[in-house]
């Protein structure tokens, strides 16, 4: 079980993520969109959506910091465990609260606004449950395992495990000691990573940073006037 969850699942999730992205890019670039519903309702969205997105971006930054920056590095710049813990507790909880409030408002909007509800697919509903569950679980794990004086130090267990994944030598033993809530959070997280390309969440991978660097006006050539190979499913019948 241990090996399965902490040695195999991460790689499966990662493989699903990568293959999913490649598949989506090749066969469903047309479906790769935010599917925004702002045109139906914008008052609530204009508050909830930025709150959620900025919250979740902070959360993401926090996770990267916590998992992939070893404690020795922060020690080296003079940040000891207690200071780090306070920073992660307060900063992380605030970011998490932003994300949770945002998504709660967004779900409320989705439920109460008829056109938005009608535009919600089953895939979306599944994704929302997973996403809300994951964020809530993370908050719960953090808050129940911490107080201001001390807290669970995941940087001695979860973080080294996460880093060991990259050396293809997963130290599954480290995870057995982690509190149950953290472990559930991690499993849910891996599932979430695996399903991203198959849901609307895929839009996170098209964050348009290149916009900052390109010229304003884009010219493109029509290209040579040869008949393009037809995409699968659109071949001529030649009746």
């Amino acid at each position: 079980m241990n090996t399965l969850l902490w040695g195999a699942l991460p790689y499966v999730a990662f493989a699903l993520l990568v293959t999913g992205l490649v598949w989506r890019h090749r066969y469903d670039t047309f479906g790769w969109t935010t599917r925004s519903s702002e045109i139906y309702e914008s008052r609530l969205l204009s508050l909830a959506s930025p709150v959620f997105h900025y919250g979740i971006l902070f959360v993401l930054a926090g996770h990267l910091l916590g998992l992939f920056v070893p404690a020795s590095w922060t020690d080296a710049i003079g940040v000891d465990e207690h200071v780090y813990h306070l920073f992660s507790l307060i900063g992380g909880t605030l970011a998490g609260l932003l994300a949770i409030t945002g998504i709660a408002l967004l779900v409320y909007r989705r439920r109460t606004n008829a056109p938005v509800l009608l535009a919600t697919t089953r895939n979306d509903k599944f994704m929302y449950v997973l996403l809300v569950g994951e964020i809530a679980m993370g908050m719960y794990a953090k808050v129940t395992n911490s107080s201001f004086s001390s807290g669970y130090d995941y940087r001695t267990t979860i973080a080294p495990w996460a880093r060991s994944l990259f050396t293809l030598d997963p130290r599954t033993d480290l995870m057995t000691g982690a509190p149950l809530t953290y472990r559930i959070h991690a499993v849910l997280g891996m599932i979430l990573i695996a399903v991203v390309p198959y849901t609307r969440l895929v839009h996170m991978f098209s964050a348009p940073v290149q916009y900052l660097f390109r010229p304003y006006i884009v010219y493109r050539s029509r290209g040579p006037l040869t008949e393009q190979p037809r995409p699968r499913g659109w071949e001529r019948l030649d009746a």
């Binding site: 348009p208 290149q210 916009y211 006006i217 884009v218 010219y219 493109r220 050539s221 029509r222």
Partner: peptide
Amino acid sequence: PSGAIYKRE
């Protein structure tokens, strides 16, 4: 932002 709109040369 995506550079998806373009003017044909």
